[in-house]
């Protein structure tokens, strides 16, 4: 009989995930139920204080803002990424186009956000252009609001939607579209009723790959958002580094992780039900 080496194959990743994902998560979870230390850190006493202080309107406002930004950007990303991925998959220059999407990654993430500040800032490229054409008389502040955050998040995250969509569309059998048109569907109808359901796994992956990092994002709102458009990530950073309220930072992390998980599970469930 041949030995089954399966468990050995997955041992390294199991160790990795336990050490660097599960353990930190457990630490975060337990910190969230403790008392805050005087200069940061925690006191080893059980306490619900952190969660109680979550229930204030300021925090809930940030949570709501985070959900709005994450849902809006994810939706726009999928809507933009779908036709892009379709075009790339059907193009004869696939490799060049995919390369063009990868190239921005060669530049540091923060530098790319600063580039947007250079474009959108009140003395930025966009303002100077609009002023020179005479479309506006005075500088407009495009930055430091929710829209700027959504715009920059879309820019930084859209490749993560394009790639999974591309790979499923690329494998999609386009004779199915011809078959649908043959049976009386218009091209639009055929794409909607035959292609979309058959690339569902790609759409699910695209949504997960974008929604999760957007929900926990803090760098983008930190740099292009104002205090009024903070996301949960910013709160965590503040509680951890400035206010040094580690239990509160942990409890926000727990909320963030749970909301993401519940959202994701709900989404995956509703999608897999359709398959049956």
């Amino acid at each position: 009989m041949r030995r089954n080496y399966g468990p050995i194959y997955v041992a390294p990743i199991t160790f990795w995930l336990c050490a660097f994902l599960s353990v930190p998560l457990l630490i975060t979870l337990s910190y969230s139920f403790m008392e805050k230390g005087l200069y940061g850190g925690v006191e080893l006493h059980f306490s619900l204080a952190a969660y109680k202080s979550l229930l204030n309107t300021a925090v809930l406002k940030v949570l709501l803002n985070t959900i709005i930004i994450a849902v809006a950007s994810t939706t726009i990303i999928v809507i933009l990424a779908l036709p892009t991925a379709y075009y790339i998959a059907r193009s004869s220059k696939k490799n060049i186009l995919l390369m063009l999407i990868i190239i921005p990654f060669w530049t540091n993430f923060l530098i790319r956000i600063y580039a947007w500040i250079a474009i959108l800032g009140s003395n930025g490229l966009l303002n100077s252009f609009l002023l020179s054409t005479g479309l506006i008389d005075s500088h407009i502040q495009f930055l430091y609001n929710r829209y700027a955050i959504i715009l920059v998040i879309i820019y930084t995250t859209i490749p993560f939607a394009i790639f999974p969509l591309y790979s499923t569309i690329e494998k999609f059998d386009f004779s199915l579209i011809e078959a649908a048109m043959d049976l009386g569907a218009s091209k639009k109808r055929a794409l909607w009723e035959v292609m979309i359901p058959n690339i569902r796994t790609g759409i699910i992956t695209a949504v997960l790959f974008t929604f999760i990092p957007i929900f926990g994002n803090f760098a983008v709102p930190q740099l292009v958002g104002g205090t009024s458009s903070w996301m949960l990530g910013n709160l965590i950073v503040r509680e951890l580094n400035i206010t040094r309220n580690w239990p509160l930072a942990s409890s926000i992390s727990v909320v963030l992780t749970s909301v993401t998980m519940i959202g994701v599970l709900f989404f995956m469930r509703s999608q897999s039900k359709k398959e049956l």
């Binding site: 059998d173 199915l176 078959a179 035959v194 359901p197 058959n198």
Partner: peptide
């Protein structure tokens, strides 16, 4: 008023 039987059948998998 034409319909086609495709080489690979092209049945809708979903």
């Amino acid at each position: 008023h034409v319909n086609t039987i495709f080489q690979n059948y092209a049945l809708f998998p979903h």
